[in-house]
């Protein structure tokens, strides 16, 4: 009788491929926009680039967490021994993924929030608290509820920006892409915090996330590439 394929190994392998595809896309966006940022020193571009740099770091942490789970055969990173190692990996993932989203939000909202220069520091603080909470809070429900509230706030802010946008009717409007990116961000957090949360939808979510990042990369390269 042929033994069934080792699903766990396949999941791990696919997860690593998924993470590295996003890391490469994010780094290509970051370095692809380096020249126009250096020439213009435009703040929106700075936050946009930082967002993708943080996405790359966050997904690197995610791959590292997946590797640890796979290698040690545990289901939750927080169960790792010594605990500090797993807690640190989880903290880094939460912090960088939250800041990636906050930077993306700030890149489209910074002009509206010009009068509140401390907003970005508040975002750093929220990201820090979320990351610390992900380690300290044993009840996952509270943390997931908090993340959902944040998602609603971020989506609402993007909607406000969309409403004010001059390109609202443009065919190539990027706001829906931003919103989907945020939804995939929250699903990725769920995936790390609740083992097997995405088991059924894993492949769909990963493919859709890759599609979003590739779409943004395509648009960046089309705009910044050679004439």
């Amino acid at each position: 009788m042929i033994p069934p394929p080792n699903l766990f190994h396949n999941e791990f392998g696919l997860g690593i491929i998924y993470s590295f595809t996003i890391i490469i896309c994010s780094l290509m966006v970051y370095f692809g926009t380096k020249e126009i940022y250096e020439l213009s020193s435009y703040k929106g571009l700075k936050y946009f680039r930082l967002s993708f740099l943080f996405f790359a770091i966050a997904y690197l942490c995610k791959s590292f967490i997946s590797f640890l789970l796979f290698f040690l055969g545990i289901s939750r990173i927080i169960d790792m021994s010594p605990m500090a190692f797993g807690a640190f990996a989880l903290f880094m993932f939460m912090y960088f993924s939250s800041m990636a989203v906050f930077y993306l939000l700030y890149s489209v909202m910074w002009k509206r929030w010009k009068s509140h220069p401390n907003v970005i520091y508040i975002f750093h603080l929220i990201a820090f608290l979320l990351s610390a909470g992900s380690i300290l809070l044993r009840g996952r429900g509270a943390l997931l509820g908090l993340n959902l509230c944040l998602l609603l706030f971020v989506v609402f802010s993007v909607y406000i920006a969309f409403k004010d946008s001059k390109n609202r009717k443009a065919k190539h409007n990027l706001y829906p892409v931003y919103v989907l990116l945020l939804v995939f961000w929250i699903l990725n957090i769920f995936d790390v915090l609740i083992p097997r949360f995405l088991t059924f939808f894993q492949m769909i979510v990963e493919l859709a996330s890759i599609f979003m990042f590739l779409l943004i990369l395509y648009k960046v390269l089309r705009k910044t590439g050679p004439e």
Binding site: E35, I36, L45, V108, S165, N167, H172
Partner: peptide, 14 residues
């Protein structure tokens, strides 16, 4: 690169 910069900022709503 002027056109590239301005078009990029508009396209990505930055």
């Amino acid at each position: 690169k002027y056109e590239t910069i301005v078009n990029f900022i508009e396209e990505f709503e930055l």
